[in-house]
Design a protein around this nucleic acid. Structure first.
Lengths: 188, 188
DNA sequence: CACCATATGGAGGCAGGCTCCGTTTGACAA
DNA sequence: TTGTCAAACGGAGCCTGCCTCCATATGGTG
């Protein structure tokens, strides 16, 4: 069906992806796409041919990370200590969202936009995380009136605020996450 | 020293401020400034003469609100129930930040930028809130390892995430704030 | 090696930020 | 009333970034 990519197309695709990783790390996911094309030695039209939207580009850059997060959630699902498992996973999620500036904003918006190219992989990861939440709730360890949506909203709020205020310094993050996790716990 | 404003200058200043309130309410604090100038019936140069930066404009629009928040904090300082007082005030702060889209982002950035025109009034309000925190900590009702900076970071994170995800619907906000406040509480 | 689907690249249109400077005008003194 | 000029005005113009469109180039295949 789908013929393999032409050699020049594949080459440009790879170069764009490689440069995007560097550029996003340096300037966040809102970096200039014209700049990206320039760095990759490619016309702006070529960039848009391969990645019709910014989200499509972000998706290509972070997909494997999402897959790993989903896998990690499934692994944590079978251990004891339901709330600890959730806390551990939340920490991973939030740390990951801080890798590129602006990522948490993109992700939070994606949850509300089914048409985003990021939606599918983002949603798969979300579903895996949701299981951790419901299990902890079933075990009576997490307050039952919080839904998955609110959990992710809180998580991305923390990730975003940390990124805005403390930049790349990861030192403060654990405490912020800890406050939220304790807030989610049922009263003894 | 500073002569009073010329009549036309004062007139334009007032019109810009009035239109800014409307425009920010409608499109958030990132609204187009060219659009603002157009609506106010004023040249773009005039806008920049009165408000050299976007922050200066935002500051003029929200200053009285900040003053009220600071006053409110001082009033709450003298009642009983230190943690409840803090919780009440946090709710006011977060609701206020949600008035205009994009405000919480602006405020959080302002805390880190002493040169911002918003800095002074923002900081006064912050100082008033800080007293509520230290009092609640002294009373043993709030964990002592959270500082003012982290409190504000958390608060704006919640405000931002709520605004991103739930828009103008204020229904979800109390629960999100509640989670954070419980997370701040010392264990019984 | 000829053909053409596939891919390229950048010109050009649009929007918004901000500056600079020639023109206008309000205030005040004569 | 009128003359003067600092103060204020306004928008042309330059910049950056987004995205589309299409004339041109090229790799793969028969």
């Amino acid at each position: 069906m789908t013929r393999p990519m032409r050699a020049d197309a594949r080459r440009n695709y790879e170069r764009l992806l490689a440069e995007a990783r560097l550029l996003f790390a340096e300037h966040g996911v809102d970096a200039s796409l014209e700049d990206l094309a320039r760095r990759a030695g490619v016309g702006i039209g070529t960039l848009y041919r391969h990645f019709p939207t910014r989200d499509a580009l972000v998706e290509a850059v972070v997909r494997d990370r999402f897959d790993k997060l989903a896998a990690r959630a499934r692994a944590l699902r079978d251990g004891p200590a339901a709330r600890d498992a959730l806390a551990t996973w939340l920490r991973l999620l939030i740390e990951g969202a801080g890798t590129f500036r602006g990522m948490s904003a993109t992700l939070l918006n994606t949850l509300a936009d089914e048409n985003s190219e990021l939606y599918a992989s983002c949603h798969a990861m979300r579903a895996a995380g949701a299981e951790l939440l419901t299990r902890a709730q079933a075990a009576g360890e997490v307050r039952p009136d919080v839904d998955t949506d609110e959990l992710f909203t809180l998580a991305h709020g923390i990730a975003w605020a940390h990124e805005q205020r403390y930049g790349d310094d990861p030192e403060r993050l654990p405490k912020l996450v800890d406050v939220v996790v304790l807030g989610l716990a049922t009263r003894p």
